[in-house]
Amino acid sequence: MLDWLPQNVSTFGSEIDKFFYVIYYITTTVFFLVTAAMIYFLVKYRFQEGKPARYYHGNNTLEIVWTSATLVAMLILAVASKPLWSKIKQNPPPAEVIIKVTGKQYNWEVLYPGPDGAFGTDDDYQVDNNVHVPVNKVVHVLLGSIDVIHSFFVPQLRLKQDAVPGREIVAWFEVTEAGSYEIPCAELCGFGHSGMLGRLIVHSPEEYEQWVGQTWPDN
């Protein structure tokens, strides 16, 4: 099943995948153990003439054992997830590139600060759906929406963040491989929800410079 994960190209993506693997192996093991036990019981204790069932009401020691074992396993899993969660959603590393992405039915409106590095000035550059970023740089995305809730999803980056009208939410990523990736909207946003599709174009440093030079307005 793990082979179906899209190729990962972000710095934190591999850590998410690692967690995914760990939980996958744990749950698969549990599933097979439980199923095996069940099938074994079903075969061994099937109705047979002259073999009565046991009059047995349970065992408190066993109850305590499996309760505390599950509890400990789950708490470990939760606590282990915490640093990664904080890293992705709470404490982004300092930004090297900042862009604004605003959801609207049914496009992503992308705003670059322009040469002066500040939003809301004359030299901002705006385009629909195409997010150009350099490879190996920390990119902050200031996410917003002008109408309904959208969700900024880049499968290859393992990144998903809702864009909520009335809020500006910071998402971040650092791509490790140049290329072109799709940015579907992952939260139902109306009849055009399917097909609301942006594109993340990740450039090598030189290409990025070139793109900036060609497309951004001059100072």
């Binding site: 439980v34 036990a37 069940m38 019981f41 079903l42 204790y45 099937r46 109705f47 047979q48 073999k51 009565p52 069932a53 046991r54 047995y56 349970g58 065992n59 066993l62």
Partner: peptide, 9 residues
Amino acid sequence: LGTLWGGSI
């Protein structure tokens, strides 16, 4: 599972 264990299913 414990209920199945030792039963006459």
